[in-house]
């Protein structure tokens, strides 16, 4: 069965560039790009939701089916 990838939405208007989502992603999916968080390797995402849970700023959403 093919793995379905989530859609990761980063709301730059809310992101304060704290690095929390990037540092604590267990699969190194995210990176900082300039001031904001950004998706580096979506294929590796295991949809654990840790980034969305920990973002203090409501700035990252992991949209799954």
């Amino acid at each position: 069965m093919e793995k379905t990838l989530p859609k990761i939405e980063i709301i730059e208007k809310y992101c304060k560039g704290c690095h929390i989502c990037v540092e604590f992603c267990p699969k190194d999916v995210l990176e900082m790009k300039g001031f904001y968080a950004s998706v580096k390797n979506l294929e590796a995402c295991i949809k654990c939701m840790q980034c969305e849970l920990r973002c203090p700023d409501f700035a990252i959403k992991v949209i799954t089916e």
Partner: peptide, 8 residues
């Protein structure tokens, strides 16, 4: 939003 709290 965004809220007033500092980054992190």
């Amino acid at each position: 939003l965004p809220h007033i709290w500092c980054p992190g």
